[in-house]
């Protein structure tokens, strides 16, 4: 096991991602940051003040639960807990940044894209991930990447965040 990011590393990475988002956001569209439940949601929540510090105000934010849109629902069984999607604004015509902790096969992102499409039609959706570990099964790529690493399929990239896990680090197991 090796630690890829510690507490400071995560904070530093989020700050860089926030400034990239603020730079690339179009000035003529409502910007929205939406996290995939649960750790993507936490990261999205943390990105908000950082993006604001980087000079972008008036951002909408929310969280999307992808359980009902997963393509492996028939095999994962009853372990799936359905949580709420909490997007209380109209996403149509927004420039929407979708946030997740780890990008792996791309299937979670695919599910999130379907869930978002059912809510409206954003002007554009951009993908922001803390860690890209490769091994995509779908043609999905991030626009904002915190850390890109080479892994083996058997590896496990574990993101632990204070709000969810009570500790703060990213490990390669």
């Amino acid at each position: 096991m090796s630690t890829l990011l510690d507490k400071d590393g995560i904070q530093h990475t989020l700050r860089r991602l926030a400034s990239e988002i603020a730079q690339q956001a179009p000035r003529n569209a409502q910007v929205a940051i939406v996290g995939i439940r649960r750790r993507g949601e936490t990261l999205a929540h943390r990105l908000l003040p950082l993006v604001r510090e980087a000079g972008l105000d008036g951002i909408q934010h929310g969280a999307v639960d992808i359980t009902l849109y997963r393509d492996d629902l028939t095999t994962i069984g009853p372990s799936a807990t359905v949580r709420k999607t909490e997007i209380y604004f109209d996403i149509t015509d927004t420039w929407l940044v979708l946030v997740d902790d780890v990008l792996y096969t791309g299937r979670s992102v695919r599910a999130a894209l379907d869930a978002l499409t059912d809510l409206g039609r954003p002007q554009a959706i951009r993908l922001c991930v803390l860690v890209d570990r490769g091994w995509r099964e779908l043609p999905i790529q991030p626009d904002f990447t915190g850390l890109r690493i080479d892994t083996e399929p058997a590896d496990n990239v574990k993101v632990r965040l204070l709000e969810v896990d009570g500790e703060e680090r990213v490990d390669l197991i």
């Binding site: 995939i36 750790r39 069984g77 009853p78 372990s79 807990t81 997740d100 902790d101 780890v102 792996y104 299937r107 979670s108 990239v157 574990k158 993101v159």
Partner: peptide, 8 residues
């Protein structure tokens, strides 16, 4: 996505 093995 990181999966959490919860007891159903």
């Amino acid at each position: 996505m990181t999966s959490e093995p919860e007891r159903p």
